[in-house]
């Protein structure tokens, strides 16, 4: 199962990083969401995968059973999930506002909304593709 989780993490990272390098602002937002999930899963795996033994103390016991899943990583991830939700909500509102104000979500065009555009660098030709 470790290998499968590692694969899923890798896939989420690949997707997240790829989407974050897009020129379209909404796709960058999707990238951030994927990356958040990828990181949570990485921390989860680092706390080791333990099946069916949650860190809960049964009635009559004073401590959880041996070989219990690590509670600390879970607490960390729980915080991370909630925070990423806050970021997502804010980012969605921001993207929506940006779009309604500027009428574009092309990051290359957004560069010049409050300063004059510097000349285009040579390394990439801006292209209108729609495949």
């Amino acid at each position: 199962m470790n290998i499968l989780i590692a694969l899923a993490t890798g896939a989420l990272f690949t997707g997240g990083l790829y989407m974050m390098m897009r020129r379209s602002l909404v796709r960058v937002l999707v990238g951030i969401l994927l990356l958040g999930n990828a990181i949570n899963l990485t921390i989860f795996a680092a706390g080791r995968l333990v099946a069916f033994t949650p860190p809960i103390i049964a009635p009559g016991q004073s401590r959880p059973p041996d070989g219990v899943a690590d509670p600390l990583t879970q607490a960390l991830i729980l915080t991370a999930i909630v925070i990423s939700f806050g970021i997502t909500a804010f980012a969605v509102a921001l993207v929506r506002q940006t779009y309604s104000q500027t009428g574009t979500d092309d990051l290359d065009l957004l560069r010049c909304t409050d300063v004059p555009c510097p000349p285009e660098p040579d390394w990439e030709e801006p292209q209108e593709g729609n495949s």
Partner: peptide
């Protein structure tokens, strides 16, 4: 929200995919 269009051309996308894949492999 704006449409989820693709703006960049094919070569840029392949290059980015390659870099992202390298990053993902490293994390795996």
């Amino acid at each position: 929200l704006p449409k989820f269009t693709r703006i960049q051309g094919q070569p840029a996308r392949w290059f980015d995919l390659f870099v992202a894949l390298a990053g993902g492999t490293l994390m795996t």
